[in-house]
């Protein structure tokens, strides 16, 4: 009977914890995705508790960012050395230091960054090194806005964390451009995208329901065959979008895979510890009616 009571109260505790978790999830604020289409899954390898990044995909994603996105979008929180950290696109087994990674040094050296001449104090441009941040395409936010019709292209460093559905959203948005439905008034400098948040009601002159999605200032950035892949992957908009979304998901939280792996160890420990504690509890309380 005591055992039964214990199990019952334990069940209650577990139900309670589950309820608490459910409550907190249910209390998730509704996102202001005013009628945007729900992103479709990119089927990414890094999803789930055991998922890891596909290094080839991260390298391709970096290439797409470098050759396409980086002409307008900065990644101010990224350093070249980060690319060679464990789990990163250019990590090499046996490397001594991410900043000494041969690929990263070569990739950095392709670019120029502003600096001050240490002798004269004059502003100069020099080759980037692994310790440098990714250079920004614009000198400041005002210049970025002025060059893009008043809306500065957002920094992409943490973009996968800054949008609901993260990588799936980025993938869906980049590959989801389509012709605006007839009857939708497009303002100059705007483009229709069904995955973009917004409310198209004021611009809808057509029949039936207001279309899903919103206006985005970014023109469709990707074309088939635009970036050359040397690993045989398909050179399509869909593949580019998927790869760059994976790269941004990695860049937004470069330690996520290691963290999940530590988490597995932590959970195994905690479950064993819970078992031991429960056995101790049963033993100590043996013979005490309660």
């Amino acid at each position: 009977m005591i055992l039964k009571t214990n199990i019952q109260s334990m069940k209650k505790t577990l139900v309670l914890i589950a309820l608490a978790a459910g409550l907190s999830l249910a209390a998730q604020p509704a996102l202001a995705s005013g009628g945007a289409k729900h992103p479709h899954s990119g089927g990414f390898s890094f999803e789930g508790p055991f998922g890891t990044f596909d290094q080839g995909q991260l390298q391709r994603g970096y290439k797409v960012y470098r050759e396409v996105c980086s002409s307008c979008h900065s990644m101010n929180l990224m350093h070249f050395r980060t690319l060679a950290e464990p789990g990163g696109p250019f990590y090499e087994e046996g490397q001594v230091n991410p900043a000494e990674n041969r690929f990263v040094k070569a990739l950095a050296a392709e670019l120029q960054v502003p600096d001050i001449d240490s002798e004269t104090g004059e502003p100069i441009m020099r080759d980037a090194v692994a310790a440098d941040k990714f250079p920004s395409p614009y000198p400041n936010a005002t210049a970025a806005a002025a060059g893009n019709g008043g809306a500065a292209p957002p920094d992409l460093s943490v973009m996968a964390k800054a949008r609901h559905d993260g990588a799936d959203y980025i993938y869906s948005l980049l590959s989801g451009y389509r012709a605006a439905p007839a009857g939708l008034e497009i303002r100059p400098g705007q483009h229709y995208n069904p995955y973009m948040a917004g409310d198209l009601t004021p611009f809808w002159k057509g029949q039936g329901h207001v279309p899903e999605g919103g206006f985005i200032a970014m023109p469709p950035p990707l074309r088939n065959g635009q970036v050359t892949y040397d690993d045989g992957s398909a050179q399509t908009v869909d593949q580019y979008a998927k790869d760059v979304a994976a790269f941004i998901a990695w860049a937004s939280d470069p330690k996520q895979v290691q963290r999940k792996q530590s988490g597995m160890g932590v959970l195994i420990f905690l479950f064993l510890f819970a078992g031991l504690t429960y056995v101790s509890y049963r033993r100590i309380w043996k013979g005490v009616a309660h």
Binding site: T13, L14, I17, G263, L267, L270, F271, F273, T277
Partner: peptide, 8 residues
């Protein structure tokens, strides 16, 4: 310990 599992 049960609570820490949820936390983790």
């Amino acid at each position: 310990v049960l609570f820490l599992i949820l936390f983790a």
